[in-house]
Design a protein around this nucleic acid. Structure first.
Lengths: 146, 146
DNA sequence: GACAACTCGATTGTGCACAATTGAATTGAT
DNA sequence: ATCAATTCAATTGTGCACAATCGAGTTGTC
């Protein structure tokens, strides 16, 4: 057995799955004018209504180098507003515009469609979800404290 | 239950796991001067010695827009050579330089280290590998033929 | 043998991801 | 009250990913 064989590496399987998911989302999200990472930001906003860039970064595990230009594009698209937190001028609050809030309805059918495209049952998906959660946690820890 | 909740979406779990893996590889590969996608290309070359850009794209599911500049960087690093296939001038063959072939030894310990960082056992990883393979296949099919 | 269809790689343009740096604002220690 | 350390967002630079387009080369058909 050759440990360096591409097809034997789980890492490549994760990588490939992630890109395949991205491709499916790309198609589904085109009508909403969103990319997949933008959709992730909208998910957080639909949940909370308002978040600081900082908290957004914690939720999505992204830094400001990624979020700043992304949020600028969402603002240009009229889905989001950004303003300094009056209580702490270092912080920037992101909140939905009415159009941004409205977009939620059109996103509602998405998760089901993706689930169908996955070809997997609910319990199998839940299992995968749990496994990946553990994997991510473990990798993140080992990255911080080698 | 809210289908649009970020933490309930398997897609985000895949996305997050992929980036966490990337981060771990980034650290491990820094000493070899490789990025993770470059490492994937090297895996294929260590296996086959020589590939056309086309076949590389099939193996990694990447198009020339991604591969061309990446291969150029590998060539600049002296790990790889590119030349037209004499038998079919449309095709470009990529092959290892001696330095590129030598690098394999230094990459050998990597899979084990990543496995350890994953915190998962061999059979659990194999299971995850299979599940992700099915997921990717299913998503790719649904992308081609909706 | 000529020409249309196809294959292959490269290029261009957009957007994501992350490291490193900068600068403003806040907090904490003395 | 002052000054050092910290927090936060933005910017810059590098690299990956993909869509769309282009041009050179090849193959198939008549």
């Amino acid at each position: 057995m050759n440990a360096l064989r591409l097809d034997d590496q789980v890492c490549f399987a994760v990588h490939a799955a992630s890109r395949a998911l991205d491709a499916v989302y790309r198609r589904e999200l085109a009508a909403l004018g969103l990319t997949y990472p933008q959709y992730l930001v909208m998910l957080v906003l639909w949940e909370r209504g308002q978040v600081s860039v900082k908290d957004l970064g914690v939720a999505l595990r992204l830094d400001s180098g990624t979020l700043s230009p992304l949020l600028k594009r969402l603002e240009a698209a009229g889905l989001v507003r950004r303003e300094r937190d009056p209580g702490d001028e270092r912080s920037v609050l992101v909140r939905l515009t009415p159009e941004g809030a409205l977009l939620r309805e059109r996103a509602e059918p998405l998760p089901r469609r993706i689930m169908e495209a996955s070809g997997m049952g609910p319990e199998e998906l839940a299992d995968l979800h749990r496994t990946l959660g553990r994997l991510t946690r473990s990798l993140t820890e080992s990255a911080t404290r080698p």
